[in-house]
Amino acid sequence: MTIVAVVLALLAALLHVYIWVLESFRWTEPATRATFRTSEADALATREMAYNQGFYNLFLAVITLVGLALLGADHEVGTALALAGTGSMLAAALVLVTRDRTMVRAAATQGTFPLLAVVFLLLQL
């Protein structure tokens, strides 16, 4: 059960590192604009906000990765950190879809690994 939880949390963290790259460094690139359905003008106007938001995604990934790294040495602390990171990722996906129903696909992409990680992290307690 722990291996499944670790793999899912790791996938969630890696996805959020990828989102960090897109939002913080590739925000105005055509492929990234297409992914986020953003026009060139809107991407230029929101570049600083996206940069900041990207780092939030990175920090959630780091919290999750530190938790995973600590699982062997201190199972309770590692689990708590992994749950904090993946739970926050899941909450962000829920906020996205409740604000704009057209973002269901993006929320599912952003939230599926964290949801499964949270379930399996709780099951291995």
Rank of each mutant, 00 (worst) to 15 (best):
Y56P: 02
E48P: 00
V17I: 15
L60Y: 12
E48D: 13
D42V: 03
R26A: 04
A13D: 03
E48N: 10
T64W: 11
W20E: 13
T28F: 00
L14M: 14
V17L: 14
A43R: 11
L65W: 13
A61H: 13
F25W: 15
L58P: 00
I63Q: 08
R33Q: 14
F36N: 09
W27M: 06
E29M: 05
L65I: 14
H16P: 00
Y56R: 02
A13N: 06
H16W: 01
N57S: 00
L11S: 02
L11D: 01
M49I: 12
W27I: 02
T46E: 14
L22V: 08
L58E: 01
A61Y: 13
M49H: 11
T38E: 14
R47N: 07
F25E: 14
V66Y: 10
L44F: 01
H16T: 00
G54Y: 10
Y51E: 15
A13P: 06
F25T: 12
Y51H: 15
Q53K: 04
E40Y: 08
E40T: 08
E40P: 07
E40D: 15
L58C: 00
L58T: 01
T35K: 12
L65N: 11
T46H: 13
A13H: 06
D42W: 04
T35Y: 14
L60G: 11
E29K: 09
R37I: 09
T38G: 01
E48Y: 03
E40I: 04
T46C: 08
S39C: 03
Y18N: 02
H16A: 00
R26D: 02
V17C: 11
F36Q: 11
A61K: 13
N57Q: 01
A43I: 09
R26F: 01
A12L: 05
L14G: 10
L14H: 12
G54D: 09
L60R: 10
I19H: 10
A61C: 11
Y56N: 02
A50W: 03
L22W: 12
V62C: 08
R47I: 03
A31S: 15
E48H: 04
T32G: 04
A13L: 03
F55C: 00
S24L: 08
S39E: 05
A34F: 03
I19R: 02
E40A: 15
R33D: 10
R37Y: 09
A41D: 14
N52Y: 11
S39H: 05
L60F: 14
H16C: 00
T46Y: 10
Q53M: 05
L60W: 13
A41N: 07
V21S: 12
F25R: 15
R33C: 05
T64R: 07
Y56I: 06
F25K: 14
R47Y: 03
P30S: 10
P30L: 05
R33V: 01
L22H: 12
R47D: 07
F59D: 03
T38N: 06
A41G: 04
W27A: 05
R47H: 07
L14F: 15
E23N: 09
A50K: 02
N57F: 05
I19E: 06
N52H: 12
S24E: 09
V62F: 12
R37N: 14
F59S: 12
E40W: 07
F59G: 03
V21H: 15
H16G: 00
N52F: 11
T35M: 09
L14E: 09
D42Y: 06
W27T: 03
